[in-house]
């Protein structure tokens, strides 16, 4: 039996089977929630945004032409909804200063990261990500977790291909510095105790 695609479920929803939408929600809820959470920084609001996005997507499903992937279309809606929310709240994110990075220090950081327990590591990374501007958190998630192409990312965040490339490069460096400031002192203090 062949696996049903997103398009199959969309057709079912369009023909009146509302329950088919539950399958799509289940499939994308974690990614949608994560993107919203990385944009707004708190769980309650992220859940509300993710929920609104799924309802919006449902009501405008007839406008989905299928020229892009369904996931890309959903991510674009959650990104725009989160942006609207941020504009309402008028949150200001301070940008980080970027220093030069040396290859050897990346190795040290990898050691330091592997020293952390899985849960501790996850929490540390989440906290570090929250120090980046919202757009950059989303760019990193879409590129490194969802492994979308730069072209697909441009469709979601409405910035040029070159701009996505530059922002990704900058956000990589920023994240590295934030993590370095948090993780290395813990690693070094534990190392010196041993």
């Amino acid at each position: 039996m062949t696996q049903k695609t997103d398009q199959d479920y969309i057709l079912e929803v369009r023909s009146g089977n509302v329950n088919a939408y539950a399958i799509l929600v289940t499939k994308y809820k974690d990614m949608m929630f994560t993107l919203a959470l990385r944009m707004v920084g708190n769980r309650e609001d992220a859940e509300e945004i993710a929920q609104d996005t799924f309802v919006k997507a449902y009501t405008s499903l007839s406008t989905f032409k299928g020229t892009s992937k369904f996931s890309t279309w959903l991510y674009r809606i959650v990104y725009n909804t989160s942006l609207d929310y941020i504009k309402k709240k008028k949150r200001v994110i301070l940008s980080e200063h970027i220093d030069e990075i040396h290859e050897a220090s990346i190795g040290t950081m990898q050691d330091a990261m592997s020293y952390l327990e899985a849960q501790e590591k996850k929490e540390t990374i989440e906290r570090a990500l929250l120090q980046l501007p919202e757009e950059e958190r989303v760019l990193l998630t879409l590129f490194y977790f969802e492994e979308l192409s730069l072209k697909e990312i441009t469709e979601i965040v409405h910035i040029s291909y070159e701009n996505v490339k530059i922002k990704l490069h900058r956000s990589r460096k920023k994240l590295y510095h934030i993590l370095k400031n948090v993780v290395e002192p813990i690693y070094l203090s534990h190392g010196s105790r041993k």
Partner: peptide, 22 residues
């Protein structure tokens, strides 16, 4: 740095909404 970022973001994984989200 690219490889390091990829590992970090993959390690962070995804967060799940509440159980009654669906």
């Amino acid at each position: 740095l690219d490889q390091f970022t990829k590992e970090v973001i993959q390690d962070a994984g995804l967060s799940s909404p509440s159980v009654d989200f669906l």
